[in-house]
Amino acid sequence: MRLVIPLMITFVAGMIMILQFFVPATQPMGDNLQEWYMIVSSAAIFLGAANLITVHVHKIRFKARNWKYSPITLIGFAVMIITGLVFGIEADLPFDYLFQQMVAPMAATMFSLLAFFVASAAFRAFRASNWRASLLLVSAFVVMLGRVPIGSMIWNKIPIISEWIMQYPNMAGQRAVMIGAAMGMIATSLRMIFGIERSYLGGAD
């Protein structure tokens, strides 16, 4: 019984969103629902933040491994919240300053660190064990070479070949994946709307 109301909400919300696409009269209802969706799903970030605080307070309380770093996370979180709420988020104010000078460089550095890990993982995992694996290796190598000046210095056709690989074989593969994934998502969405797929409700019967 405790699943009936959530399943009904899922069905009605899903059907309204599908109908508003085909029946113009239902569009205002669909637009409102879409705004409700945005508001309620944004509450999930508060859930995440509450969870982050709980985890780190718990670590400090029970002196778990690396607990000494947990106050740093909590202080960083508090500083952003306080500056954002007190000064606002407009440019050149403390919140924006902290984002531009601290969060953005750290994010860029974190992602640039991946360059080393991806390269080292590729070195370990890429083996030209069969001709298809060799094809993958060659295609990756040509695309990488085509995007740096040394590629055109070795042979001026490398950037053109790299562009062709991106535009044709890569696009064909990406499209096949995209269409396949879209079909899968549509099927899963229909299963959710019709209440066949219920795992998101916590697996309760």
Partner: peptide, 10 residues
């Protein structure tokens, strides 16, 4: 969650 999933699926 039901509202999010239903609307998102639609």
């Amino acid at each position: 969650l039901a509202l999010i999933v239903g609307t998102g699926a639609g």
